[in-house]
Design a protein around this nucleic acid. Structure first.
Lengths: 145, 145
DNA sequence: ATGTCTGCAAAAGCTTTGCAAGTAC
DNA sequence: GTACTTGCAAAGCTTTTGCAGACAT
């Protein structure tokens, strides 16, 4: 992704433009495996020798507050991040900690229609996300990325 | 829940019957808010003065391995637990860390049927769970439990 | 010039682990 | 009696916080 696009996102969100923020933003927008803070540090190292993980946490925090990213729900005790993008769901691999996006407009429509008719007592729905647990059957596609 | 039922569950799973395990199991089976390890310790304190949290973690670990409980997916860094029961989904409160079960057979059927027709490329679905985020509109029901 | 961000290190959670003593079987 | 479990404390991780110096505006 070109830097000027990344800078534009930061500017639009009233965030000061720093090399560290550009690097973190680029990683989250480009990577598809929903990185943890540590993943981000490791990935950035390749191009940006040393960003302390404390700084990455602060940056992630700022991004989350601005709504640029979200935390992904997992059943482990480490937080993973997801760039905010068009409505999507998540595929969770049973045998690894891989999490991938799943886009499906028919599914969105199906669920939206369903909950328009069927209300949940005492609960006002803001959004929903389907967690789909299972196994990836084609590892190549991911490993060679 | 009567002790003999709890004991029966432990026995069926080849777990030795100890007062600590009975207490933890009872909490998880009865409480509906998906407690963390710390919640469990606090709750148990009322009837069982002191169970170290390390022991609770070991018990939870044993229960999870036997499939008596599951970890609940959240976007925080603390793990919460859920008794394994008939298929259900989760309601997540936006303004608190409350998580409740949502049972809906029509929804289960709808999704099962949907994914029988629509396959996800390179992914073999084992199960799915809908996360429903929003706001509880009737706090009384919960607060007075 | 000002307010914000980074880097570093310390501190603060949460969870796991090791081991001796205790308990279930 | 044996194997497993508990209790306790230490260690391990992840995440947060504080503060001085650096940087963006």
């Amino acid at each position: 992704m070109p830097d000027n696009k990344l800078i534009e996102i930061l500017a639009r969100n009233d965030l000061r433009i720093t090399p560290q923020r550009i690097a973190v933003l680029e990683v989250i927008l480009n990577l598809e495996f929903h990185p943890s803070a540590e993943d981000i540090v490791n990935y950035i190292k390749l191009s940006f020798p040393h960003v302390p993980i404390g700084t990455v946490y602060k940056i992630l925090d700022a991004f989350e507050k601005k709504g640029i990213i979200n935390r992904v729900k997992t059943d482990s005790d480490t937080v993973r991040y997801d760039a905010v993008k068009e409505k999507h769901h998540h595929l969770y691999a049973h045998d690894s900690d891989r999490i991938e996006d799943y886009f499906d407009d028919d599914l969105n429509k199906l669920l939206t229609t369903y909950f328009k008719k069927k209300k949940i007592p005492n609960f006002e729905i803001k959004e929903f996300k389907l967690q789909i647990m299972g196994k990836f059957t084609n590892k190549q596609a991911w490993e060679t990325k």
